[in-house]
Structure formats: structure tokens, C-alpha cells
Amino acid sequence: MLSDEVQTLKEVPIFASIEPSKLKLLAFACDRMTYRKGQDLFRQGDQGDAAFVLLSGTANVIVSSASGELTVAEVGRNAVVGEMSILCNIPRTATVRATSKLEALRISQDHFLALTSEFPAVASEIMRTLVTRLSKTTAELVKARLPPTPD
């Protein structure tokens, strides 16, 4: 139901600044999708056309590399996934796979871009999230490059 979805969206940081009536409009404009356990929301390398807000259930963010698949994060309720590829039209950088029965709100690319241009607060919030993610990644990279500390 729309009102539940609005409730969830309100708790998502990047949408927090949007007034409830607009959130309801956004929720109305989106598809509410259900996924089975093990089903992919999207796959690494595919062209992106939508972002997802998880309403219930959990999923793994998986990156495939030469040494096989690597789970880089676990996400759950209120998480936003898939927004990177639709922001700058790059292929999906990771696969997101449901680890339980999962419900998600699918925000198509043009809706998402319309939001960022209509609500500057959304844009800056997205920027903040991305920068946080980047700094975390950088830190992990640094950690990975450093020689293991002797015990």
C-alpha cells in the first residue's frame, strides 16, 4: 500500500528531505516488485534502467572477479541499490541477489533523475551517500594494499 511505502521512503536518508505528499507521488509512480530467494534484482555488467529501495527482506551485493564471486555487502530494509549506474549511465558494477523473499520499490531512471533535479536536497544527499561509500572503499583499498601487520 502507498502509505506503507511512504513510511519506508521517509526512513531512507536520501528521501528524508522530501515532503510526504511528494513521496506518495513517487511511490505511486514506482513499481512494487517481489523477488524470490536467490533471484537477482540486477546483474553486474547489464545496462541499468532503475534503482531499487528495499521494503522488506535482505539481499547480497556481489561482485564477480577473476577469483569467483565475492559478496561485498549485505543490505536490508530501507537500503537503496542500483542508483550508481543510472546516475551516470554505466553498466551495473555489481549483482544484487535476494537472500530471502524480498520486496522492493523499483524507481525507473527518468523518475529518479527527475527527482534529483526537482529536489536539490535529494541530489546532495545522494552525493553524501556516495562519498561515504567512496571513502569506505578507499579505506578498504588502503588496508588491502598495506602489508599484513605482524602479530
Binding site: S21, K24, L25, F28, A29, S108, D110, H111, A114
Partner: peptide, 16 residues
């Protein structure tokens, strides 16, 4: 009407 009152007619939301 409440949702769409202020939305421009060509907005992509109307497709829904």
C-alpha cells in the same frame, strides 16, 4: 487529484 495537482502534464509520472 491531490497527488497530481501540481505536476506538469508532460511529467513522466503521468505514464503511471
Amino acid at each position: 487529484v491531490e497527488l497530481f495537482r501540481d505536476v506538469a502534464p508532460q511529467h513522466s509520472f503521468f505514464r503511471r
